[in-house]
Each structure stands twice: as C-alpha cells, then as structure tokens.
Simulated assay, not measured.
Amino acid sequence: MGEVPLSLHVDADVREKLEAEANLQQTSAEDVAELAIKRYLEIREHEREILRERIAEADKGVFISGEAMHRWIESWGTENELPPPEPDVFLPPRRT
C-alpha cells in the first residue's frame, strides 16, 4: 500500500517535543510521528487481542472466588503459606 497524506493539528508543545526528538534521531518530525502512530496502533491491536483472549477464557465460566484468593494472599509470608487456589466457581459456559 502506498503512502497517503495525513494532516493533523497538535498543540505547540507537542510539535516542539516532536521536532526535538526528530533532531535527536537526525530524522524528520514526520518520520517520528509516523513511527509513533504505527507503534500506538500495534499496541492497541495487541491489547484488543489480549482482551479477546481473556473474554474467551471468562466465557468458559471457571473462576476462583474472591474468598479463596483472599485466603491465599493473606497466607503469603507466613509459616502456613497456601498454594495458589484452584477454581471453585463454575458457571454455565456463556454462549455467544
């Protein structure tokens, strides 16, 4: 896919910081901005994928209760430290 123009307005301080960063990298402000946008979009897509995975896991209906988690955390650093809790809440799987 070829390049297409994009125009945007930013605060003066953002533009100043962008130009300062470009000077440090010995490149253009446009190149720094393009890279920043690419990285932002990659991060957001990664976050959405993680969320999709977590939702799919939660939709299975298998959970650890707050009480079990609390008992485990309270045992940390004691003589009777408990192992991580096993799931103890089982709901019908969610159908989508």
Rank of each mutant, 00 (worst) to 15 (best):
I64G: 02
V4K: 15
E45H: 12
A20K: 01
V32Q: 06
A29E: 07
P84Q: 15
E74A: 15
D11Q: 13
S28D: 13
E45S: 10
I37K: 06
P83R: 07
V10H: 13
A68R: 09
D59N: 15
I64A: 05
L8R: 10
S28A: 10
D59K: 11
G2K: 14
H9V: 13
L82R: 01
D88Q: 12
I43Y: 04
V89E: 13
P5F: 04
E79L: 04
S65Y: 08
R54K: 00
I37S: 07
P93E: 09
R54T: 02
W76S: 09
E21S: 06
R48Q: 10
L91P: 01
E3H: 08
I43P: 00
E19G: 01
H46W: 04
S28T: 15
R39N: 09
Q26W: 02
M1A: 15
H70G: 09
L6V: 07
E49Q: 05
E57H: 08
R71N: 09
R54G: 06
A22L: 02
T78H: 01
D13P: 01
R52L: 05
S7D: 07
G66E: 13
T78A: 11
D11L: 14
F63D: 03
R15Y: 14
R95N: 09
A33K: 05
D59P: 06
D13Y: 01
F63G: 06
K17E: 07
L91N: 11
E47P: 00
N23K: 11
G2M: 14
R44M: 14
A58D: 04
R95Y: 10
E45R: 15
K60F: 03
R95M: 07
S7R: 06
R39E: 15
N23G: 05
E42Y: 13
H9F: 08
I43S: 00
L24T: 10
Q25R: 15
P87E: 06
I73K: 14
V14C: 07
A56N: 12
I64K: 01
K38D: 06
L18N: 02
L35T: 10
L51G: 00
S75Q: 04
E74S: 12
N80F: 06
R15F: 09
E49I: 03
A56R: 05
W72T: 04
A12H: 14
P83G: 05
K38R: 15
Q26K: 07
P93H: 05
I73H: 12
E86P: 07
M1F: 14
P93Y: 08
V32R: 08
D59H: 05
G61P: 03
K38F: 06
F63V: 02
R15K: 15
A56P: 02
E81R: 11
P93D: 02
N80G: 09
